[in-house]
Amino acid sequence: MDGGYYAIKGFEYQIDKTLSEVLFSSNDESVIGIEQIQDVNNGDYVIQVKYKEAAKLTPSAIRKPIIQLINEFILDKSRNYILYCYFFDTNGYTENVSIDLLETILGKEKDKFDGTVKNSFLSKFNLCFSETFQNQFQSVLRKLQELNFCNSKDEAIYFYSVLVDYLRKKVVNNPPDQVSSRQVTKNELLNYLNKGRKVTFLSSYKEYRGEQEYFKFLKSRFKKPIKNQNTIIFFGDLVESDSCNLQSLVHQIVKNHYHRATHDVKPLIFIIPDEKIIEVKSYLIKENCLLNDGYETILFNQKYFESPPIINKKMSGGKLTSSLSKTSFEARIISNLTLDKITELNLNVSWIFIDSEKHKLLCDSTYQTINNLNTEQLLKLF
């Protein structure tokens, strides 16, 4: 295996450890920092996390992180300092570090610190050889299953994938100097899960359960567009299968939406990648699917784009029914570029993001995100 594999897995292990520390915290408001002073910290402790799947334990392998912890201890003697590490030949217990063992670990660096500092440091230091990657993961799942809104192990795996993504973005999207953005509390995570207005489907669930189980679980939680509410379907860089390209997917979603529709049906709104917009529109026109694009290729008119369709109700026995007979258009469709020019939507909408980042117009609207499904799988979902 190359170094990239171990670096990525080590990062995932650190995120898992952070999640574990937050969930097992007895104080719901305790602020835990991620990759700030060290890998994980709060007001009481500092943790260095080292994952060495392919390495054996040697003094030199833990020398550098222990020196870093000693230097942090010199600056702040009030906290406990922990080296939380995994080596394939040593795991699952806490080592009692004596002054002789510490000096062996420090090697030629031992004379950089006087005896008083080293002894004081040891009174605040723990060397923990962690569980295996899988055991730590299972421990987090068990904790998630204790939540009163978690009803199964599958839901725990789903919540795990959501929280791991949430923590990962705190690290990736915020430079180390933005301390306040790299902090989290237990309450913050629980509120994030408990809002009930977001449904996010992530690849980490698929990696653990497999593609079929991922799709089955996704289908059980996915909320199809409600026919009498406005929904924006935002397509990003998705994978097109041989049997279903983007244009045929859009057309079939529209057909499904209008199947047995009543007169109050709202046209779906599709946001299409710029390079695909002409192909999709051309296909819909060829299939006699009426669309409203706000004249975006001439001069985009947002007022016209947002205007409701003209509809006719079906007649039965000489009386009007609630069923739809005709409509002036069945879909609103514009490119990503055109959407970016809109500063404010005048429609109350929910969003479905497919292999795309959330848009600036989202605001407080409800949304779902779906990643890593091809067009054929998406068609089965809708």
Rank of each mutant, 00 (worst) to 15 (best):
65 P>C: 14
97 V>T: 10
151 N>K: 14
61 A>M: 06
39 D>V: 03
132 T>A: 12
49 V>S: 03
134 Q>T: 03
263 H>C: 08
116 T>P: 03
27 N>F: 11
69 L>K: 10
66 I>T: 12
293 D>Y: 06
288 N>T: 07
362 L>P: 03
325 S>L: 09
33 G>F: 08
268 L>K: 08
155 E>N: 06
98 S>Y: 05
145 Q>I: 02
318 G>I: 13
161 S>E: 05
311 I>V: 15
140 V>D: 04
160 Y>K: 14
355 D>K: 04
139 S>T: 13
119 N>R: 14
307 S>A: 15
309 P>M: 08
289 C>G: 11
143 K>T: 09
335 S>L: 13
36 Q>I: 15
342 I>N: 00
213 E>K: 11
29 E>A: 07
1 M>D: 01
314 K>H: 15
130 S>C: 04
180 S>M: 14
288 N>F: 03
312 N>H: 11
361 L>V: 13
260 R>C: 14
182 R>F: 03
237 D>Q: 14
380 K>G: 14
7 A>P: 00
293 D>H: 07
123 S>R: 06
182 R>Y: 08
234 F>S: 08
148 N>C: 08
359 H>M: 09
69 L>F: 05
379 L>G: 09
177 D>I: 09
231 T>P: 02
320 L>N: 11
137 F>K: 01
330 E>L: 15
77 K>I: 07
134 Q>S: 08
319 K>C: 13
354 I>R: 02
284 L>M: 10
219 K>I: 01
30 S>D: 11
233 I>R: 00
275 E>M: 10
2 D>V: 13
61 A>H: 06
115 G>Y: 06
349 V>D: 09
26 S>V: 09
228 N>E: 12
78 S>A: 10
289 C>K: 11
146 E>G: 15
332 R>P: 01
13 Y>M: 01
342 I>S: 01
7 A>G: 00
54 A>T: 12
63 R>Y: 03
146 E>I: 15
177 D>P: 00
243 S>W: 02
231 T>I: 03
237 D>A: 15
292 N>F: 04
359 H>A: 06
198 K>V: 02
88 F>A: 02
351 W>K: 05
28 D>W: 02
12 E>S: 15
174 N>S: 15
274 D>M: 07
157 I>A: 05
241 S>Q: 12
348 N>E: 11
14 Q>C: 00
38 Q>D: 12
146 E>Q: 15
9 K>Y: 12
73 F>W: 10
119 N>Y: 04
183 Q>P: 04
369 T>H: 09
76 D>L: 15
254 V>G: 00
75 L>M: 13
97 V>R: 02
243 S>E: 12
